[in-house]
Computed example of a mutant assay.
Amino acid sequence: MTLHLRRAAATSLLCGVLVAQPLMGTAFANPLDALFAPTSSDSAPGQPADAPRFAGVDNFRDVAGTGAGYTGADGGHVRKGLFYRSNAVVPDDADLATLEDLHAAAVYDLRTPDEVSAKPDRVPAGAAYVNIPILSGDLTGAAAQLRSPEGARAFMQDMNRGFVTGSGERAGFRQLLTELANTDGPQVVHCTAGKDRTGWASFLLLSIAGVPRETIMSDYLLTNEYSSASIAATRAQIVAAHGEQVAAIYTPLLGVEASYLEAGIAELDAIHGSVENYLKDGLDLDGGIIADLKDTLLG
């Protein structure tokens, strides 16, 4: 099995295909729908509102964080209400109405065609839908090769390294960042679980804004809190269908661990030395695009 297919399988599993396609011969229902009710998104007076919480889109959040927003370059705060990160955009009617109140200009779907067809987005009115597929391959077949939790973790680490070294991955992130820079208004970036491809995109945006890496890591790990109910439900589905031993193998794929993002960052540092060099040399981004993103993020 090639490294490309291993990364593809890992991303597919982690972004939700695990519960939508057969695993070792058995299909099981998708538990990623409506697992907790929306909660209040009140902010302190004078602060932009936090991102709303949705019943069926549990990992929807503002790239800038909550409260005043993450602190970036020169002590400025990352602007809220501009870039959102999410899992699959499949809101119910009530949540769709709330989502439309954000007036998103575009929704960027980083999933493969198979993922999209399994769970199509419900795009809010007025938003352009842009599919930028990242990764491909025989996802189910490659996933079936996993035999240990350590192997699953290696999958995740390989996948994050691939965001640095893979030509298709780099082309996808180049297109995404270019679209984000050239589009006015709030925008949503997502994959299926909103944590791996979307997590790397968020890492890049926050790095452009000058947010410290320890803050970026804390933000990355928030998936385990936002999606805790769906992660637990998915694991229970695997136990019911395949037993505890198989569930233990696949558990590392359901959430995020620091070592996953760290693997990608280490690869980036080793090859390019800095995020700026990765953006310019690895993604072949024009300096003007990077400057526009920084200006937008810090306002």
Rank of each mutant, 00 (worst) to 15 (best):
T2H: 05
L3W: 10
R7Q: 15
A9F: 02
A9H: 00
T11F: 04
L14S: 13
C15F: 05
G16W: 03
A20S: 11
P22V: 00
L23C: 09
L23G: 10
T26H: 10
A27P: 13
F28K: 07
A29W: 07
A29N: 13
L32N: 14
A34N: 14
P38N: 01
P38L: 00
S40T: 10
D42G: 06
D42Q: 12
A44E: 06
A44G: 06
A44I: 05
Q47E: 14
P48S: 05
A49D: 08
A49L: 02
D50P: 03
R53L: 11
R53F: 03
V57Q: 10
D62W: 00
V63N: 09
G65P: 07
G72Y: 01
A73Q: 15
A73V: 04
G76T: 11
H77C: 12
G81D: 01
N87D: 15
V89P: 13
V89T: 09
V90Q: 14
D95G: 02
A97W: 00
T98V: 07
E100N: 07
E100T: 06
L102E: 03
L102Q: 04
H103Q: 15
A104P: 13
A105E: 08
A106N: 09
V107H: 08
D109K: 02
T112H: 11
V116S: 07
S117F: 04
K119D: 15
R122E: 12
R122F: 02
V130T: 09
D138Y: 01
L139A: 12
L146V: 05
R147V: 11
E150H: 05
E150Y: 00
A154D: 15
Q157P: 08
M159N: 14
N160P: 05
V164Q: 08
T165C: 04
G166T: 06
G166P: 12
G168T: 10
E169V: 06
A171P: 14
R174F: 03
E179S: 05
T183E: 06
D184K: 07
D184I: 03
Q187P: 11
Q187A: 04
C191Y: 00
K195A: 01
G199P: 12
F203I: 03
F203N: 13
G210A: 01
V211A: 06
R213T: 09
R213L: 13
E214W: 00
T215P: 05
I216N: 09
S218R: 14
D219N: 08
D219Y: 01
L221I: 00
S227H: 09
A232E: 15
V239T: 10
V239N: 10
V239E: 15
A240V: 06
A241K: 11
G243D: 06
E244S: 07
Q245Y: 04
V246W: 08
Y250Q: 05
G255Q: 01
V256W: 04
E257R: 08
E262C: 03
E262T: 08
I265L: 14
S274G: 05
N277Q: 13
K280N: 12
D281L: 07
I289E: 09
I290L: 05
I290M: 08
A291M: 07
L293V: 01
K294F: 03
L297P: 11
